[in-house]
Nucleic acid binder design. Structure first.
Lengths: 149, 149
DNA sequence: TTCGGTTTATTCATATATGAATAATACAGG
DNA sequence: CCTGTATTATTCATATATGAATAAACCGAA
């Protein structure tokens, strides 16, 4: 990667960069940044791509609550995200006749296409990252990350 | 840690969690989340703590531009963050007579105390993380992270 | 069947970020 | 000394998040 991290908001890393905790935070943000940059040209953000991807994977419309669960965020966030996705023409809200409280998000054709284009870009970033981490012990890395979460 | 990740906005992790890229993003977010939770009781966010810490480390007032550089973010962000820190009584804006364009941020007594309390909490989280990562190869992890950034 | 608790989405207030536009100041070179 | 360019902070519009409050709809138990 070797891109400058332009999104380390707190900017804490102690006296040296070797502090593991902040390195992990910064690494995560650096990758997010790369993904955002890769998605920008096709008109997506990481948040939007995430929502579209869950809808594609589900293969059917999902209620906004289900979306919130899959994206591990609060529902008011999904309300807003869907507003933007709907404004972009990538998603359509449909009412659920079974449960009139529920609103489902359905992909539009454009939404499906956009997600597919996004997936290609994400795969590209992922391949870059794999190459970057080529020489290192990925097993150790995976074990560490799964210990954290 | 083993706290549920309640802040994985995109929520993408593919079919399995083994996808390194999203694991890294999620690990970073999980740690951020722990830090936010640790700082909340003392009235700080990670962003606020970061700003205070840079001021403490500098040992003197810093211009808002210098703060933005240290925190690797745009200046309009610092303007807003300083507004909130000033409202909290943790920082004071002082005009620079040498350069009348410049506004410097100076720690208040309360700001210094709050940062110090925050640093203790951060150290606690850091110690927890160290313990979590006890069994794993931290050298490999460090090398991986420095490769990414 | 009505009542009360739960779930649904939305709205509102707020925090944190970006980036563009603006205004004031500095400063170098003619 | 002007003049143009750069730098400074701020403001504005926007995106992404949280959490509290609200309204509508559902559902089980009395």
């Amino acid at each position: 990667m070797n891109k400058p991290n332009t999104r380390n908001q707190h900017g804490i890393s102690g006296k040296d960069d070797r502090q593991l905790m902040f390195s992990l935070i910064n690494a995560g943000r650096a990758i997010e940044q790369s993904l955002e940059e890769a998605l920008t040209p096709i008109g997506l953000s990481l948040a939007k791509f995430g929502a579209l991807t869950h809808l594609v994977e589900a293969g059917e419309p999902l209620s906004l609550s289900e979306c919130a669960k899959k994206m591990t965020c609060v529902r008011s966030n999904i309300t807003q995200l869907m507003d933007r996705l709907e404004a972009d023409g990538l998603v359509r809200r449909i009412k659920d006749p079974q449960d009139r409280r529920t609103v489902k998000a359905a992909l539009t054709r454009l939404g499906r296409e956009r997600q597919s284009a996004g997936a290609k870009e994400v795969a590209r970033v992922q391949a870059e990252l794999r190459k970057t981490l080529d020489g290192i012990n990925q097993g150790a890395l995976r074990r560490a990350l799964s210990a954290i979460m």
